[in-house]
Lab assay of single mutants.
Amino acid sequence: EDGINLEEIREFAKNFKIRRLSLGLTQTQVGQALTATEGPAYSQSAICRFEKLDITPKSAQKLKPVLEKWLNEAELRNQEGQQNLMEFVG
């Protein structure tokens, strides 16, 4: 629908959760960090719904690039050390 690749979103949601957990981050931490930079659309409950795919494809499509960018950045910081990650997450 609307050129939205559901399979891709499903895959990303699954990987997002795995990668988030491997960084040792909670949904709350991700939500707080993103709410600070991106606004309330990225709250803990939004992250939770995204991971469960309990949102419309359109919403998922909107969240995905922001979550992807944030997660990549978080992983980079983590490679530089846990301290850097925690500063990034705030």
Rank of each mutant, 00 (worst) to 15 (best):
E1L: 05
E1H: 01
D2S: 11
D2C: 05
D2Q: 10
D2H: 10
D2V: 04
I4S: 12
I4C: 05
I4G: 01
I4D: 06
I4V: 01
N5I: 14
N5M: 12
N5H: 14
L6Y: 14
L6H: 11
L6E: 11
L6I: 13
E8V: 02
E8R: 04
E8D: 09
I9S: 05
I9D: 01
R10Y: 10
R10E: 07
E11Y: 02
F12V: 02
F12Q: 02
F12W: 07
A13H: 00
A13G: 02
A13N: 02
K14F: 04
K14S: 07
N15C: 04
K17P: 01
K17C: 00
R19W: 00
S22F: 02
L23C: 03
L23Y: 03
L23A: 03
L23F: 00
G24N: 06
L25R: 04
L25E: 02
L25M: 04
L25W: 11
T26C: 00
T26Q: 07
T26G: 05
Q27W: 00
Q27V: 12
Q27C: 15
Q27D: 06
Q29K: 02
V30E: 01
G31T: 03
G31S: 15
Q32D: 14
A33S: 13
L34S: 03
L34C: 02
L34F: 05
L34A: 01
A36Q: 11
A36D: 10
E38G: 07
E38P: 03
G39W: 00
P40V: 14
P40L: 07
P40F: 07
A41K: 07
Y42I: 12
Y42K: 04
Y42N: 07
Y42L: 09
Y42S: 03
S45D: 15
S45I: 01
A46S: 09
A46N: 13
A46L: 12
A46V: 13
A46P: 08
I47P: 00
I47M: 03
F50A: 03
F50Q: 02
F50C: 00
E51L: 00
K52V: 02
K52I: 04
K52R: 13
L53W: 09
D54C: 08
D54P: 01
T56V: 06
T56K: 08
T56F: 02
P57G: 11
P57N: 09
K58V: 10
S59R: 13
S59Q: 15
S59F: 13
S59K: 13
A60F: 09
A60W: 08
A60P: 01
Q61A: 15
K62H: 06
K62Y: 10
K62L: 13
L63V: 05
L63T: 05
P65G: 08
P65D: 06
V66T: 08
V66Q: 05
L67C: 04
L67K: 02
E68Q: 08
K69M: 09
K69W: 02
K69D: 07
K69T: 07
W70T: 03
L71M: 14
N72T: 13
E73G: 05
E73W: 04
E73V: 05
A74F: 10
A74M: 11
A74K: 03
E75H: 01
E75R: 00
E75F: 10
E75W: 04
L76Y: 09
L76N: 09
L76P: 07
R77M: 11
R77G: 07
R77A: 14
N78S: 15
Q79D: 13
Q79M: 09
Q79F: 01
Q79V: 10
G81V: 05
G81F: 01
G81C: 07
G81A: 11
Q82Y: 07
Q82V: 11
Q83Y: 11
Q83H: 14
Q83V: 08
N84L: 06
L85G: 12
L85Y: 04
E87I: 00
E87R: 11
F88P: 13
V89S: 11
G90K: 10
G90P: 12
